[in-house]
Design a protein around this nucleic acid. Structure first.
Lengths: 248, 248
DNA sequence: CAGTGGTCTAGACCACCTT
DNA sequence: AGGTGGTCTAGACCACTGC
């Protein structure tokens, strides 16, 4: 099959079912498949892309579990309504979320520097406490309103040129993904009260709670990044969808 | 293959890959597979259960994405460390989470009654505003400390005997699942400040933020339940794990 | 009924280790 | 080298829908 180029910069082969997913997602974001439109059947897609039906099935099953499409047994697959809220699987890529809603994205890089790891981060990254870590602090605004305060700690070995980037033009997320997509990620979601500095950067009044996502990412066995995303509770929610017989 | 009985009370056939998952999960929770222990290989499991390798593969792939096991290419599959926090896929079943940590579960049924749907809930459930809905308000405590305030609105047609149950002995979740497992669920996670009543029921001081999960469940096309789970921010977190090449 | 998605098999090739 | 998981195919049967 002819696969759309997904822009990934490394050289790993992309599995066929991933290409099928990209094929469908491209047609949705490209507009040739409207919201609610019926997708070609599994058999049609398989024939069209010269791929086995099981491969198409896996691709569509995963898209359904991600909430991109909706499948009805005996009927067909349909393009789902886009999410009102950040999906759990995209919760770290706020820039895309803001843009996809048609809002104006603005970015303020508050800090971008090298810091000492310290004891706890050092232990986490398996480096000495005095070893350097790259640190960034960025605020993302939607139509001028702060939506996310993003604090990142990045392993210098993984992104040696991190401090030289201009994160106003390319988000930290996009840059890090252009180096290598994580192979594992862990997220912890909490409700917290912001401290004064956070409240100021997010332009909220102190009694307002915040939703934080603490995200740790690995590439293979290497812990590459540790990030904390802080969102104003009044402006940001996280959604997750489950479908299928497997719901627990 | 011989499948463990999963206690479901309805008559739907359980897919083979689900039985394989149950087979593995049973052996983990039963103790015959310790944390970190190596699972039989896909081929061994397939032979042992008289099932094709692909079926085993799908079962193990889903268990890995749920964080139950950890797979290493070229090496094998291993029982994962249990979660410190409620997993996103289990976030509505707090009773199981509390018990699985070895804490003492206590339950207080604050309300259990029939109420008028009202305009917004009526529209959501596709019933008239004056039609009845069953409502419950339950507090779940871990070692005496409130961990979740659970407000539920249930479609009477789906659970006609809901008001007759004793939810101190069987959790609302378990009871509803015994009627039918949902085929679709939607969750929205937010950080909010509790009102006075919520703060009192959860035994927290008002400036403490709460994590709420608003969950809507469907069985086939029928919206069967709308629930709001409120957790003290200081006592409860939600985690999610992602693994594989698909991480976005 | 025809078409759809849901599941399952047997067999195959490959890339990746040494929890 | 051998075993592991990751992927893919061709073909099959089934249950569900009439969007």
């Amino acid at each position: 099959m002819k696969a759309p180029d997904d822009g990934r910069s490394w050289n790993e082969p992309i599995p066929l079912y991933e290409k099928v997913k990209l094929f469908v997602v491209d047609r949705i974001s490209g507009g040739s498949l409207e919201i609610g439109a019926k997708l070609p059947s599994e058999n049609e897609l398989a024939a069209q892309l010269s791929v086995s039906r099981l491969t198409v099935h896996r691709a569509l099953r995963e898209l359904a579990s991600e909430g991109v499409i909706r499948r009805v047994h005996g009927v067909g697959s349909f393009v789902a309504q886009p999410r009102d809220y950040a999906s759990i699987v995209h919760l770290h890529n706020i820039a895309d979320v803001i843009r996809s809603r048609g809002a104006k994205l603005s970015t303020e890089v508050v800090e971008l520097s090298s810091v000492s790891a310290g004891v706890s981060l050092g232990r986490m990254f398996h480096i000495p406490a005095h070893a350097p870590l790259f640190h960034s602090l960025v605020v993302y605004c939607s139509d001028g309103l702060p939506m996310q305060l993003e604090a990142r700690y990045i392993l210098p070995d993984f992104a040696p040129d991190y401090l030289k980037q201009d994160f106003r033009t390319m988000s930290t997320t996009s840059y890090l993904y252009s180096l290598a997509a994580p192979t594992r990620a862990s997220n912890i979601i909490e409700a917290v009260l912001p401290n004064k500095r956070e409240a100021k950067l997010l332009q909220i009044l102190p009694p307002e709670p915040c939703l934080t996502v603490t995200r740790t990412t690995w590439v293979q066995r290497m812990l590459t990044g540790f990030s904390v995303f802080t969102h104003p509770g009044s402006r940001h929610r996280i959604s997750s969808e489950q479908e299928g017989k497997t719901i627990k």
